[in-house]
């Protein structure tokens, strides 16, 4: 039994950064903006979080600063694409390239230092409960935030007025503008939120997953998060399922190897990407579902005319 619990805990750890970054990006895309810079914001969060924890000795402060760093970095994207109406695809890509380079430079002095781990919760009695104790009461804070975030985002998007506003901006910015909504402001806020989430995802990598700073340590997880949003057809609940599915494959491939099931590792590694393409095709074919969930003005620039 213990073995299964510990496997599930590994899966949680592998899924959490994906879930955080994807949930943030989901909000961004729901507002009609495609930010391909998730990888860049994530790695900026990872380095900022690690550096802060090293300097202050407090991993929680590190996580907070990581969110700030992610948001600040996303502001660059927002300014270019929203204020200067630059191309979103190219700007997102620039954000990733810059983030990887900049984080490497910032982190130079922190390479090879043992990190400060954000410890898992340890509540007397509760954490010691059989089976559920560790799973429900014995994980790190960021894990709980990631789960709460999914439900929070769901509630926000579909149960609040502000959420409705955000979705209407994503679906048709021209008519939203006509209704008196400040399209640019809504999108700015969404992008900042996405940046903060990606930053926190990065902090999870450098403070919980492997408490150390390593250049390029996000290793493509930002791109997986992007894929996840589409995989989930822009639904928060499905992002949760998708992230844990990816996490399970990530951990599962090593277990498969260790018990002697020889599947080429390259095949398993490419599986998530192939799955995303399949899902993309399926949702695109299902017109009704597409209409319901896909933000119609995704990736299009908006200039308020006067």
């Amino acid at each position: 039994m213990d073995v299964w619990i510990s496997i599930i805990l590994s899966i949680c750890a592998a899924s959490t950064p994906l879930l955080l970054a994807a949930t943030g990006e989901l909000v961004v895309e729901r507002s009609g903006v495609l930010n391909l810079g998730v990888e860049g914001m994530m790695i900026m969060g990872a380095v900022a979080g690690f550096a802060t924890a090293q300097v202050t000795g407090n991993p929680y402060l590190g996580a907070l600063v990581a969110m700030g760093a992610g948001a600040l970095f996303s502001l660059l994207f927002a300014f270019l694409t929203l204020t200067l109406v630059a191309n979103q695809v190219a700007t997102g890509l620039a954000l990733t390239i810059l983030g990887i380079g900049l984080s490497g430079m910032i982190g130079e002095g922190f390479v090879g230092r043992p990190g400060i781990r954000m410890e898992a919760l340890d509540i007397p009695i509760l954490t010691d409960l059989p089976i559920i104790g560790k799973l429900i009461f014995g994980q790190d804070l960021i894990f709980y935030i990631s789960i709460a975030l999914v439900f929070g985002v769901y509630w926000f998007l579909f149960k609040t007025r502000a959420g409705l506003t955000l979705r209407s901006v994503g679906d048709n910015h021209t008519s939203a503008h006509a209704l008196g909504i400040n399209v640019i402001k809504v999108r700015y806020l969404a992008v900042l939120f996405g940046g903060a989430c990606a930053g926190l995802a990065g902090a999870h990598l450098s403070l919980v997953y492997v408490p150390q700073w390593v250049e390029g340590m996000t290793a493509g997880r930002g791109w997986i998060a992007l894929a996840l949003v589409v995989f989930a057809s822009w639904r928060p609940g499905r992002v949760l399922v998708g992230a844990y599915l990816f996490g399970t494959v990530t951990i599962g491939q090593f277990h498969a190897q260790a018990i002697g099931i020889a599947i080429p590792a390259q095949f398993l590694t490419s599986l998530p990407y192939i799955a995303t393409i399949v899902v993309l095709v399926l949702i695109a074919r299902n017109r009704r579902m597409t209409m319901l969930n896909t933000p119609a003005s995704l990736g299009q620039s908006f200039v308020p005319d006067r």
Binding site: V3, S6, I7, S10, A13, A14, L205, Y209, V210, Q212, V214, M217, A219, R221, T250, I251, F254, H255, Q257, A258
Partner: peptide, 13 residues
């Protein structure tokens, strides 16, 4: 590192 960590956890489990 994250991938090496995953492999380590799997082996321990």
């Amino acid at each position: 590192p994250p991938k090496e960590a995953d492999a380590a956890k799997a082996l321990i489990d």
